[in-house]
Every structure is written in C-alpha cells, then in structure tokens.
Design a protein around this nucleic acid. Structure first.
Lengths: 137, 137
DNA sequence: TATTGTTATACTCTATAACTATA
DNA sequence: TATAGTTATAGAGTATAACAATA
C-alpha cells in the first residue's frame, strides 16, 4: 500500500472513531438527563419484553456477572423487577409501570438527540447504511 | 419522530458502533503482534516528529498524568527516549533507531489489517468520508 | 502565578473463578 | 454434568490532586 493510501485510511478511520465517540457522548448526555448510565439506559430500552439476565448480558455484550449489579441498581430505582422464569434457575427482568414510562421518555429523548438521524437526509442515511454493511460483511 | 424513523436511527447507530468496535479490535490485534497496547502503538505512530509529553496527551485525548507511565514503558522497551526541550520544563519524546524501525513495521501491519481500507473501493471510501464529515459538521 | 512532568490515589468498566440452586 | 444467577476480586484504563522545577 502506498503512503498516500495509508494516510487516507488513517484519516477515514479517525473520522469513523470521531463519529462513534460523538454518538456515544450524545447518548450518554441524553440518558444522564433522566439519571441513568449508558448501560442502564440500554437495559431499559431493551426491556420492551421481559428478558432473562443471561440473554440481557448477551445483548449488552458483557459478562453475566456484571448484570447482577446493573439489575440491583435498576431495582433500587424502581424501574425493573426480578420475576421467576419457567426454568426456576432463570430470573426474568421486567419493567415496572414506572420503568415503562421511563422507557417511553428515554426513547423520545434519544431519538431527539441523535446526531446520525438529524444531520443526514433519508437518502444519505441509506447510503451510509449500505457502506457500513459492506464493512461488516 | 415516528417509530419507524426511530428504529431506523437505532439500527444505523448500532451498525456505526459495530464498525467502530471492529476497527478498534482489528487495530488492537495487529499492534499486539508487535507487543504493544493500542495506546503505546498510537504513541509510536504519532512520534514521526519528537513531541512534548503534554501535546502527546492532547493527541491521545487522555490526561497528562497517564503519559508518564506510557513513556516509561516505551523507554523500557527501547523504543523512545526523553530529551530536554528548549523550555526546560518540557521533555520531548523521540523515537530511538529501534523505535523508527518498529514504527515502519507497525504502519505496514496497520495498513494491511485495516478493514476500512480493504473492503471499500476508492469511490466508496470517498463517499463514506463525505458522509462522516457531514455528521461531524 | 501559571505550566510541565511526576507521583499517589481512586474510580469505572469489565472479566475470572468459585459458589448455590436448579436442570 | 451443565447452566443461571450471585459474589468476591483483580486487571485495565482513566481521572484528580498535590508536588518540584521552571517560566
């Protein structure tokens, strides 16, 4: 690879990271408004349907041991509750009525604060999705 | 925002994070081959010209206190050395001859392992750069 | 007074291993 | 034996505050 392509690649990667970092920071700012950390917020948004703690861990791409504390905190806040599953080893996490309200509020705020959505036209968003899919293939 | 746009936005952001995470993981894998952490590797790549530790911290977007240990480790490895600056408060970090060789090796490997470069045509890379710039504007 | 590099320290995030209760 | 959730703990990575040397 010639040096110019190397530099082009570096610049492109740098911009990619910048966009991802900004999107992450935007998300963190928005969810902080309702008193949640990013991981707590992702959990609340995920719990449209009740979910076993194990499968939540898979969704969050973290170890299962971390979900215990996460669930503890959201339970303290009155947003989720542990309910037994059919398999009695399993505990399902389910939003409380208060959690359901928070989730709706959160979804609105996240959508409103989303840079990716706001700054591109529909055609551009489609273009970006296509390019990103190609990178993930 | 209607629910469909909200979901489209969520899916787009998710793909963006996935691509960024994969690029980060690729970089970490490649630089691990030469025995460096990502931060150490970014430092070596940055030091084409000698750099004050303070300005290195700004480039790495981390606190200056972290650069001390980073420099210590790279010095142990024989890749960089501290040299006094004109302002005698300042220490410049400079690559040793061994560090210069490592930097060239590293640049080749990073370029070869770059998903962003490999999977897109020149036209697509330009398209992606344009979209990312629009998001950063 | 302000700034550079340093040190000590603490906080967050995440992972590993051992434990229990079920299966 | 294997799996779900829990607990204790350890390792990165990063930040803050105080310090000495210098501006």
């Amino acid at each position: 690879m010639p040096p110019s392509r190397l530099e082009e690649s570096r610049a492109l990667s740098a911009r990619l990271f910048q966009v991802a970092e900004r999107a992450k920071a935007d998300f963190a700012d928005v969810v902080a408004e309702v008193g949640l950390t990013p991981l707590q917020a992702r959990t609340v948004l995920w719990l449209q349907e009740p979910s076993a703690m194990r499968s939540l861990a898979r969704h969050l791409a973290c170890d299962a041991s971390n979900v215990t504390g996460l669930a503890d905190r959201l339970e303290e806040l009155g947003m989720v509750e542990r309910t037994p599953g059919d398999d009695r080893r399993v505990k399902l996490l389910r939003l409380t009525p208060r959690g359901v309200k928070l989730r709706a509020d959160l979804a609105d705020r996240v959508a409103a604060g989303s840079t990716v959505t706001a700054k591109l036209t529909a055609a551009e968003r489609k273009q970006l999705a296509t390019l990103l899919d190609k990178l993930l293939a």
